[in-house]
Simulated scan of single mutants.
Amino acid sequence: MMNNKKPEVWLRGELPGISTLLQPAAHALLQSKEEVFKYTEGFPEFLLWKRPAGRASVGFHLQHITGVLDRMLTYAEEQQLSEKQFEYLRNEGAEIPEIKIDHLTQAFTEKVAQAIDIFKNTAEEKLTQKRTVGRKQLPSSLIGLYFHAAEHSQRHIGQMLVTISVLRNQNN
């Protein structure tokens, strides 16, 4: 029997045009994107906003990883969040029936593509530049923001997988 499964993104080699220092963040974001589609394939829409044991819904995780990535990219550009971004943040996890899995996975795909383009255009010497986060202007760096966006998405993908597993098990 032949195994056609690809290795994880980080084991497929260097991504062209991206600094060696940003390869791990790019790999993690691309892995998250693949896993979003893998884990939500065939997932019933009626379970999207269910919160088993009071935990976050699959819909929340999908919205949140997109929102965090967007916010980290904004801080990386030394900007503050817009009112539209604050509204998105306030609505993360809110059950909005017209929002479907396809909408959420597409939004994350687009945000990951934007991040990869930014990584390709970021010179290594800029990565240690100071950046601040949020209204409190908490200290970080450019590479810190990019890394956080990547690892944060991976963490929520893991949580989303558990939620999907629980919901599928409860509804079989």
Score class of each variant (00 low, 15 high):
I96R: 08
G42C: 10
R12C: 12
A94K: 15
T128C: 10
V112G: 00
P52Q: 13
G134W: 08
Q63C: 10
V162S: 13
L142S: 02
N3H: 06
M1C: 08
Y88Q: 08
R168Y: 13
A76C: 13
H61S: 11
I99S: 01
Q106P: 05
Q85M: 14
F37I: 07
N91V: 00
H103D: 13
L30E: 08
S82H: 02
D102Q: 14
L48W: 11
T40W: 03
I96K: 03
P44C: 02
E45I: 03
Y39H: 09
A150D: 05
P52T: 12
H27N: 09
E124V: 09
R55V: 11
K38T: 14
F108A: 08
T132N: 10
Q159T: 07
N91P: 06
R71M: 12
F46P: 00
S140D: 09
E124K: 10
Q137Y: 14
P139T: 10
L104V: 00
M160V: 03
E45W: 04
A150G: 08
T128P: 02
L127K: 08
R135H: 12
L62E: 03
Q106Y: 00
K111S: 02
N91I: 03
A53D: 15
Q85W: 13
A107N: 07
G144L: 02
L127C: 05
L73C: 07
L11F: 12
R12L: 09
G59Q: 04
Q63N: 11
I18K: 11
G42W: 09
H148M: 07
G134E: 10
A149F: 11
E151G: 00
I157M: 04
K5D: 06
L89T: 14
E14R: 11
R51I: 15
A76Y: 02
I143S: 04
K50T: 12
